[in-house]
Amino acid sequence: MLRYALRRLLMILPVLLGLSLIVFAIMSLIPGDPARAILGSYATPENLAELRADLGLDLPAPQQYLVWLGNILQGDLGRSYSLNRPVLDEVLERFGATLILAGTALVICIVVGVAAGIVSAVRQYGWSDRIITLLVLVGISVPAFWLGMLMILAFAVELRWFPASGMTAVYGGGGVLDILHHLVLPALALAVVAAGVIARLTRSNMLEVMRQDYIRTARAKGLGEGRVVMRHAFKVALVNLIPVIGVQAGFVIGGAVYIETVFQWPGIGRMLVNAISTRDLLLVQGGVLVVAASYVLFNLFADLLQHWLDPRIRA
């Protein structure tokens, strides 16, 4: 297991490298002078020259990439001109808020999606299956940002159960309960799409597993249907579902961009949207790099978890 983990860890190095290469390539697509694009049209010629030297823009492209990569590896993601603070500080602060939101949403969509998928598979073609199938379709067809607004209108404006925006109360907020209270609506809105996808895949996976020979063996032993489903079938389905959940984590993080905008959540998605409209490209680059790298790490974790749970590949 340890050896496998180390090997997988080594294997993500090229992925991370490729990732940085893509980001670098995208960033060098910016038309015109990047230094001017970064500093804006009011920059002085001295500032521009300084930044150009800083970014190594006078060097050939491969060398530029190495300089750029070297800076990033030292934790230097540059300075945000619109916020006037180091990109890394801002990104890490915002990323924390996103992790709280996306993490909660991920837990919700796994629990709800898996439960719905199991019920749907066990009651295949029955009424609960039909209702869940329809709900799943609604879930994956509904624009999350619109759903968020509907939830604000219903639960924040009409019923006044939950706050409509922000992560903490403006006055005297910040406690765990306060954050939880603010978290309910955005986390639910964010969880809907992924819950639908997970429910769908859980259902098809359970149906697939239920046809396997070892399920017939379990029944031939005289095992009750509840334990056939939960102990024998779900155990295998879960192992198959872990990579799916890893992929869904990417969709949840992506969806956070919309939900953070709708609910004014101070996360990295909203930061990115603002940074794009103010053309603060270093901030965009830093945000994208950090989120993408942590997504790669999350999938590594999912992969290791699957290996740990499945003795067949664990050996």
Partner: peptide, 25 residues
């Protein structure tokens, strides 16, 4: 396929955002 894997290493929408950031809205 390695190139495709790299693209898939990004969270879906994030990559779209990065592209729009560069091309402009």
């Amino acid at each position: 396929m390695r190139g495709i894997d790299m693209l898939m290493a990004f969270p879906y929408i994030l990559l779209a955002l990065a592209i729009v950031a560069v091309l402009g809205p």
